[in-house]
Simulated scan of single mutants.
Amino acid sequence: MAGEIPDLIAQERTGTGKGAARQARRDGMVPGVVYGGEQDPLPIAIEFNGLLKRLKDGRFKSTLFNLKVDGHDDVRVICRDVQRDVVKDLPVHLDLMRLRRTTKINLFIPVEFVGEDSAPGIKKGGVLTVVRPEVELLVTAGDIPEKIVVDVSGMNIGDTATISMVDLPQGAKPTIDRDFVIANIQAPSGLASQDDDEEKDPEDVEVIEGAAERGDED
């Protein structure tokens, strides 16, 4: 089931060219173009502060948006490029691409962990360590999963959860071609230190003591 796709609000630009782009920036907007989808390119402008916040939040280029422009039907888009000022590193232009429902795209999908209350390793004091809170998947634009679920209820201390253990949505596949780790259960620090002490060889201690005694005799 597809998750909720965030809206990206824009307005259509009435003019094109460098002059119109500079005017948009003076008005506190970032000019851009929407292309693809067998339609004519659409010049747009997006509110600067809102765009800057989304860029700082991360994953902007790998997030599918529902583009809303007055006078036009909503359309799903993904960012293909953000041009920045070479000195200030602030956005000055962006390119958005329209997507069909059957288009395959790479997106980062959040991971939800369930079964922590019943996991034997956690009951023993172990700690669930999340290696990947998001997983990049190749998905269909019309069927984007809201999340993937990892069940850790059977995991003990030292166990790992890998991508091969996850039931992925139909049609989705990882972009990494190996069985990578998503999370593991580690021993608590106190227990780990105790185990290290128990692994020391008593004979090593005796040798050191013996060497000290021989030093006293000299």
Rank of each mutant, 00 (worst) to 15 (best):
D179K: 14
R26Y: 05
P120Y: 07
G215H: 13
E116S: 08
A211N: 04
T175V: 07
I78P: 07
E199V: 05
P110V: 03
E136M: 12
V149A: 08
L128R: 07
K18C: 09
R178E: 07
D81Q: 14
K147M: 15
L137C: 00
D85K: 01
E203F: 02
A212E: 12
E198V: 01
E112I: 10
I105Q: 13
S189D: 11
L42N: 01
S153W: 07
D73S: 00
V69D: 11
G50Q: 05
I176M: 14
L55A: 03
S189P: 11
D151P: 05
I109H: 01
K56M: 02
V207Y: 08
V34F: 02
E116A: 10
I9S: 01
V75F: 03
E134W: 12
V207R: 12
A24V: 00
T162P: 11
R76P: 04
T102P: 06
L90P: 06
R80N: 14
M97P: 07
A172F: 03
H93S: 05
S62R: 15
P120Q: 07
M29I: 03
G158E: 10
F65T: 02
R22K: 14
F65E: 03
V92L: 07
H93M: 04
V127M: 12
A161L: 05
D85L: 07
D81C: 08
N49Y: 06
D216A: 14
F108I: 11
R98I: 02
E198D: 05
P133A: 04
S153C: 11
Q194C: 12
G3E: 08
A45M: 01
M97Y: 11
E116F: 02
A119E: 04
Q170I: 11
L42E: 00
A141Q: 01
P31Q: 08
R13C: 07
R25Q: 05
I144M: 10
V111K: 09
S118R: 15
S189M: 08
L51D: 02
G158S: 07
R13G: 05
